[in-house]
Design a protein around this nucleic acid. Structure first.
Lengths: 185, 185
DNA sequence: CTCTTTCTGTAGCGATCACTATGGATTGCG
DNA sequence: CGCAATCCATAGTGATCGCTACAGAAAGAG
């Protein structure tokens, strides 16, 4: 029943694919780049991950999973203001980390609009909770605010890809924070 | 001395190339797509515009020229606040115009970082003038503010590419305006 | 008209794209 | 061991990439 075991670690190879797609996007990444980065020959890649689209779906899902961990940690903070501030700071640092490609795969890749909408929705729900908790004034347009914040994070990603530093992105984050309505008193 | 005249209008063909690059970016646009959109065969394209990089340089320069017209109109407004508001509104409408592809070529294309830096610099200079005119408080971090505003516009472009409406982008613009320091009194 | 110059269309160049057929290598099971 | 199952490496599929050689068509100069 059991055949020859595969000679590479699937999770390690997937992580390499994530980084490659992160760096070059879906269209900019060729199978040859993937096999090189993953240390796997084309037939092994196709046997283990399916075609390029399927591999990208799995890689972007893994990326999204990691992203959501950070988002959940941020949204767990006591106030909406702290949650948003943490989220923007995390974004600034993650997009400019030396150990990973600049920018954000999820915010850059055209075909990941659904993931972006998901994050935006999580953000909006946290803002809604902030309104209920009194962190934000009643009547705060949480939907518009969430749309704005996702746009800002997308801009941060682009800035990082253009060579922007952590400080540049943190400055954007701080400036964006001034758009949050002051807490009700 | 004079040979056979070319059978197409160079400016019209260039405009078609601009739109094609605008829609699909540099890497996403093939010569076949360009020749199709421009109504020109490959040898004519190469004779009139050079290779793909050269054509893109000319097309993006043309796009940039049009963009700067709008930027200049906005920066000519009497106050920095009006200038920024106009610029963001123009951006919201331009990125969602029905007659052109969604989003912005200059803000989306990775290789146009120099043009982005140029616009950011123009914006910063207008903000500096605002400080001198008293439109903005003394000590306003105009450089950080300009970086922020370019990031927001880039986010608006991405939002438009994801299907965002003019209203969505105008909401982002309005929210971003609240990050501008109140005028000195 | 001929000659030169320039443009146009066909057709195809080598390279790379995503992807796979084939055959040998490596495992567990009996 | 033999057998079935699974994976690996070579090599190559047709399609498309950016780009161009070639030959015919259309203009002015003489």
């Amino acid at each position: 029943m059991a055949g020859r075991p595969r000679s590479f670690d699937r999770d390690t190879a997937l992580a390499a694919a994530v980084e490659q797609f992160w760096r070059s996007g879906f269209e900019g990444t060729s199978i040859a780049m993937l096999t090189g980065a993953m240390g796997v020959t084309p037939p092994s890649l196709y046997a283990a991950f399916g075609d390029k689209e399927t591999l990208f779906a799995e890689a972007s899902a893994e990326y999204f999973r990691r992203t959501c961990e950070g988002v959940d940690r941020a949204t767990a903070l006591p106030t909406a203001r702290e949650a948003v501030a943490r989220m923007l700071e995390d974004t600034a640092r993650a997009h400019t980390a030396a150990s990973t490609p600049p920018g954000c795969l999820m915010l850059t890749e055209p075909r990941l609009a659904a993931q972006r909408a998901d994050v935006q929705e999580r953000l909006r729900r946290r803002l809604d909770r902030g309104v209920r908790d009194g962190d934000l004034p009643a009547g705060t347009p949480t939907d518009r605010l969430a749309t704005f914040l996702v746009a800002v994070m997308r801009g941060m990603s682009g800035c990082a890809r253009d060579g922007g530093t952590t400080e540049d992105l943190l400055a954007i984050a701080e400036t964006a924070m001034t758009a949050l309505p002051a807490p009700q008193r």
